[in-house]
């Protein structure tokens, strides 16, 4: 019984961490360059919609993923145009992107698909030698998009901390004027990070609609994008801590379902608030520690020319 519970919670934790990982890692890269994007939820919805639509039209999962990448690029560039070129208030523009994505995905879904239906999404991978191991095999039986999400974490860490461009991103987010004086094109860096963030948010939505849930309907994400933004703060803008945050949140969410299924007698109202209570406790604990945050977060860059 204990083995079944561990396998169940572990499997659920990894699977549902995937959309958070894509979205939160993309948001971390953006915020490290000084860009806050509260529109992640809207971009997730657009990515989820386009991927689902392409699967219903072509049955090609890879084409659907490519569609989500293009959709993410478009929304990333819109975000960059608003926040970098037009120097919009980032909190407000993000909410605008969210509402736009929510409305547009609902509208497009209504006119192109119309009815709610399920599709065959990315299948679970059977890894020889691992899938047959008790408990561990159950936990690790996941689809390719889940594996890719976890592979993304070390890549993002390496990209941010070990590559020249990653260091430029950090410089731009920390001291944009100093970076500019050293020849770094601040706005170009932010355009690129906004686009990367848009692509990853869009893939996060696709991972839900054609990987985890295999369904699309209005407001499919139900706040997951906002939780992803919160997880960036939770993780102190460090990739590996953000990953841990995604896993912790997802695991407690899985535990929440299990407590009810197991019938442990705890009122459902309490189990439902469990993940948020844990997040609050961790955040309160972390508040005592020194947390790195990008100094120029939400501040538009102006060279002061002319």
């Amino acid at each position: 019984m204990i083995g079944t519970i561990i396998a169940s919670i572990g499997n659920s934790a990894l699977q549902y961490a995937a959309p958070y990982l894509y979205a939160a890692i993309g948001e971390t890269i953006g915020q490290r360059s000084g860009l806050l994007n509260l529109g992640v939820e809207g971009i997730m919805l657009m990515g989820g919609y386009i991927a689902f639509f392409i699967v219903t039209a072509t049955e090609s999962l890879l084409l659907a993923l490519a569609g989500a990448v293009v959709m993410g690029m478009v929304f990333g560039l819109i975000t960059a145009f608003l926040n970098v070129t037009l120097k919009a208030e980032q909190g407000i523009s993000g909410i605008g992107i969210y509402i736009f994505g929510l409305g547009l995905s609902t509208f497009l879904f209504g006119i192109t698909i119309g009815d709610v239906r399920t599709i065959d999404g990315f299948p679970d991978l059977v890894i020889p030698g691992i899938s047959s191991i008790p408990i561990l095999g159950d936990i690790l039986t996941q689809n390719a998009l889940v594996y890719a999400a976890f592979l993304l974490a070390p890549l993002a860490w390496y990209f941010l901390n070990k590559t020249p461009f990653g260091l430029k991103i950090q410089a731009v987010g920390q001291r944009p004027r100093a970076a500019d004086s050293l020849g770094v094109n601040v706005n170009r860096v932010r355009y690129i990070t906004a686009t990367i963030g848009g692509i990853l948010a869009s893939i996060a939505g696709a991972s839900l609609s054609i990987g985890v849930l295999n369904v699309f309907q209005q407001n499919l994400t139900s706040g997951m994008g906002f939780i992803a933004v919160a997880l960036v703060y939770f993780g102190g803008w460090q990739v590996y801590q953000v990953v841990l945050g995604c896993l912790l949140f997802s695991a407690i969410d899985g535990l929440k379902s299990w407590l009810q299924v197991a019938g442990v007698g705890i009122p459902s109202e309490f189990t439902l608030m469990l993940p948020y209570v844990v997040i609050l406790i961790v955040l309160a604990t972390m508040a005592r520690k020194r947390v790195y945050s990008p100094d120029a977060l939400t501040e538009p860059f102006d060279r002061g020319e002319g």
Binding site: S8, S12, L272
Partner: peptide, 25 residues
């Protein structure tokens, strides 16, 4: 019959997660 409540009318992911737990049980 194991009874579960997600606390939401529209949270598709919550329903899917709960369904997964039921099946694993």
């Amino acid at each position: 019959v194991k009874v579960t409540w997600t606390g939401s009318y529209s949270d598709v992911a919550a329903a899917a997660k709960t369904a997964k737990s039921h099946i694993q049980a």
